[in-house]
């Protein structure tokens, strides 16, 4: 009895497993188009994005470009240890994170507001014109923008003149020479340059909201502000969340062009960022390993930030994961 029972149990189990596989394969078969659709891109992503990751081994080598992989000298965690013992590294890390956070706070919220405002403009031609104009500075290079800002803030520049005339200042101030202003200046310059450009994506999300929702809200007697609050904002929620999560993941990838072009020798303690540091103490002095070690550090931090952001946003998004 017991044996047969055992047998039948096993049989049952096998059958269930078979059934499960069968169902699984059925599901796979049903999804064959999805697989076909994504397959070429899987190959693409592996070839172009993951194969080059072998370069990370450089961080553990005394890498010399003319040697082949097998000829390199392995040095273990030497460069990571050096990185974490360098005081300069913590300084540039601080600057990077502070400037990134500032630019996330402003460069993220203002474009949303700006997009909503643009959408509220009734006059179509005016709307289109303003939108086009607002994204023009995106095409002006940082060299030019940095030049405009330094002239604006120079001793004889318009800002000083204005403040002197208004009696807010007694002596002209060398704004660019003050480290404590630098973060603010970079943030404002960035906002000024990219506001319109960054708002395009939000505008696109806003115009895709179903018009019926607005009509329904109007029927309920909601005024424009209520419509923005109850229809527009929830309507672009997903796009806003995903952008937020991805930007948080990117906090450490700051680039260095704008800081480099706006800085001067007197504010270096506030202006130097990680990406420039990696370049100066990496490739510039032919230490490819050091640059790669910084790159790996950045990737790890990014992924941690991304996961944290995703968990937090999930809470705000009624428990639904965004990523």
């Amino acid at each position: 009895m017991s044996r047969t029972g055992e047998e039948s149990g096993q049989l049952n189990y096998c059958f269930e497993k078979q059934q499960k596989y069968k169902r699984y394969f059925q599901r796979l078969y049903r999804q064959r188009y999805l697989f076909l659709m994504v397959l070429p891109f899987l190959v693409w992503v592996i070839v172009f994005k993951y194969i080059p990751i072998w370069g990370w081994t450089m961080a553990f080598q005394d890498y010399k470009p003319h040697f082949s992989f097998l000829e390199q000298t392995w040095v273990g965690f030497k460069y990571f240890i050096e990185l974490f013992h360098d005081r300069q590294f913590y300084l540039v890390l601080r600057n990077t994170l502070v400037m990134s956070l500032l630019s996330l706070l402003c460069g993220y919220t203002f474009p949303i507001i700006f997009a909503i405002f643009i959408n509220e403009i009734r006059h179509k031609f005016f709307q289109k014109t303003i939108q086009t104009i607002s994204y023009l500075p995106h095409f002006v290079s940082w060299v030019v923008v940095a030049g405009i800002f330094t002239k604006l803030l120079a001793i004889g520049g318009p800002i000083n003149q204005l403040l002197l005339e208004l009696g807010l200042l007694k002596e002209p101030v060398l704004f660019m020479a003050k480290g404590e202003y630098f973060w603010g200046i970079v943030t404002v310059a960035d906002l000024w340059k990219e506001l319109g450009w960054n708002s395009i994506i939000f505008l696109a999300a806003i115009v895709s909201i179903d018009e019926n929702l607005y009509e329904a809200a109007q029927m309920d007697g909601a005024n424009r502000f209520r419509q923005i609050w109850h229809v527009t904002l929830p309507g672009i929620r997903m796009v806003v969340f995903i952008m937020l999560i991805m930007s948080i993941g990117n906090l450490i990838n700051i680039g260095f062009e704008r800081q480099f072009l706006l800085q001067n020798n007197l504010v270096k303690d506030y202006s130097e960022v990680l990406d420039l540091y990696a370049l100066t103490y990496g490739i510039r002095v032919a230490r490819y390993a050091y640059g790669t070690a910084v790159g790996i550090f950045k990737s790890v931090v990014s992924i941690i930030l991304l996961l944290v952001a995703n968990t937090v946003v999930k809470r705000f998004n009624d428990g639904t994961a965004v990523l």
């Binding site: 699984y24 599901r27 796979l28 999804q31 999805l34 697989f35 994504v38 899987l42 992503v45 592996i46 070839v47 172009f48 994005k49 993951y50 194969i51 080059p52 990751i53 072998w54 370069g55 990370w56 450089m58 470009p65 991805m246 993941g249 990117n250 990838n253 490819y288 640059g291 790669t292 790159g295 950045k298 990737s299 990014s302 992924i303 991304l306 990523l323």
Partner: peptide, 28 residues
Amino acid sequence: EFVARRLVTALFILTMYVSGGLIPEFML
């Protein structure tokens, strides 16, 4: 309901935050 959804998602998310660097990309 796509079976490989999580895998594909993860593969593409990571591309934003990892990079092999200039030399390996050049060699590729």
